[in-house]
Design a protein around this nucleic acid. Structure first.
Lengths: 232, 232
DNA sequence: TAATAATTGTGATATACATCACTTTTCTAA
DNA sequence: TTAGAAAAGTGATGTATATCACAATTATTA
């Protein structure tokens, strides 16, 4: 599926970035997972998964940012940016055992691959685990619905404002923050062109809503962003 | 939450439109559900749920079509058209106990309301049930992702072609088919204006891709629709 | 069944944003 | 450290589709 890189095997029990569903596992179940997993690292730009490829493992992100996107010829839609603590593949745990989207490392990334069949067994063996998966899917689904709403009802200055707030509050959780994504990625996130992103950036700086140069952005007027977000 | 209408109580065991997850329940579990449910019917146009309202029950559609949509002031995005056999509310089973979207009856509708706490208990008591819920959410999530892709990368003739095929193959499962949704709804489904839907309809008729008048549509050239769908 | 309202259809016009073309800056690697 | 490539910025132009205005149908209710 993916090219094996380097092994830095730690025991699951001692994992410090354990996901919520995995915290519910018994020692025995944890050991079973341990026996069917692989740790890998990816360099920035490498593909973790390719849309339509056979999915033998669920990918757990331990470190770094990953871009999940749908593609068809030249068209791309970024579904989300996955942060550490996210599973790639649970979105299609049942159904065709195929990755529903492509995933590309936006930074250097460390992951843990868990056998998908072990994953499925855990759903049946441990209902708290299953509940955790449902919770994860609930969150993803509502996010996707809200994205659908935003992309279809707001125009680019609204969507761009939303993106800035998302990056500061959710993705990087800081202000100012250091961009790890390109203008092209920002454009694909809010369904616009890179040129428009550049223009929006300049306009917002001119109006004193944000400042910064290069890869640093600081939000100066988040209230203003919120207003633009809501009222266009 | 919703105004109680008329009772036509049947036993869950004998229900002929039982959902996949509910088929996995034991007799005992089925009885518990039975004790905490209500059957209701809605007239066309009535609201089954209102975005943001407290969600005490999961709504199971037994009969009719329901429009699920997000709203904010005048803006609307239809998330999907729910058919019989669909749950409304599992999308937000955990998290805030609030309806994540509004639901409006597109036809006369019969539903079965199941207590959300019983629903949550079943997830923990019966792992096959939990698995069924995960399967449902998987399908919904992938659908939502594909919608996101379609809406952001295709232009209206492509989206309209997709809609026609969806109505014939998935929603009404017939050709010709009788529309139960308005031009406005069609517009909200593919994120365009009602005027554009009218124009597309005329153009497609002119080109011999579809025919029909009033609320009847017949697809004459589905290969053509498929091509427009993919290539714009 | 007539009267009124709501939905639908169609042409003319407006506009948000993409695309194109080019420059400037930043990154990459020899 | 510099040369070449990639990414980003900016103005000019084009276009898909919304909006507006009004006509024609269809639905609703008195």
């Amino acid at each position: 599926m993916t090219n094996t890189k380097e092994y830095i095997k730690i025991n699951c029990m001692d994992c410090k970035v354990k996901s919520k569903p995995f915290q519910k596992l018994t020692a025995e179940q944890m050991n079973k997972v341990d026996e069917h997993r692989t740790e890998l690292s990816f360099k920035k730009g490498e593909l973790l998964s390719k849309q339509g490829m056979f999915m033998s493992h669920v990918i757990y992100i331990r470190k770094g940012f990953v871009k999940l996107y749908l593609e068809n010829d030249d068209d791309i839609t970024i579904l989300t940016i996955a942060k550490p603590g996210t599973f790639i593949g649970v979105q299609a745990l049942y159904g065709e055992a195929v990755f529903p989207f492509s995933a590309e490392a936006l930074t250097d990334v460390e992951v843990c691959l868990k056998d998908i069949n072990v994953f499925r067994e855990l759903v049946l063996e441990n209902s708290e685990f299953a509940k955790g998966i449902i919770e994860t899917l609930n969150v993803d689904l509502i996010k996707s619905y809200n994205r659908l709403f935003s992309l279809t009802t707001k125009q680019i200055n609204g969507r761009f404002s939303e993106l800035l707030l998302y990056m500061s509050n959710v993705l990087y959780e800081s202000n100012p923050f250091q961009l790890t994504i390109s203008r092209k990625d920002m454009a694909d996130l809010i369904s616009t062109s890179p040129e428009s992103v550049s223009r929006l950036m300049s306009e917002f700086k001119e109006q004193g809503i944000i400042k910064g140069q290069g890869h640093t952005i600081e939000i100066l007027d988040d209230i203003r962003l919120d207003t633009i977000c809501k009222c266009g």
